[in-house]
Amino acid sequence: MEKKEGDRLIIDHTSYSTRLSRRFTSRKPYEPPVAGRIQSFIPGTVVELLVKTGDTVKEGDDVVILDAMKMKNRLKSHIEGKVVAVNVSSGDRVAKGAVLVEIA
């Protein structure tokens, strides 16, 4: 744990002088999920793209097949809309949380 003297932590409008843990200072700010974003929920390899830019998709349509944990995972669209961006090609290795396809 890294130490910085003189850090402050605010709780109930009171500012406390204290050390902050690395876990606290390096925490990621919360980002609300965006419905049209198809993201990898786990690191893996894109096996197949089932849509291309401009395609219309319905809710529940398969969009991408992601190979991860020895499983071919079918990622589905949560909304009805148009594919506005395809950010990966088949064979790409993707990190957790990568935005693969965007639907609007």
């Binding site: 932590l9 709780i11 204290t18 843990s21 876990r23």
Partner: peptide, 12 residues
């Protein structure tokens, strides 16, 4: 421990 994170209760 007020020296660390003002001594709050958290998950860990």
């Amino acid at each position: 421990q007020p020296l660390e994170m003002a001594g709050v209760l958290d998950v860990d």
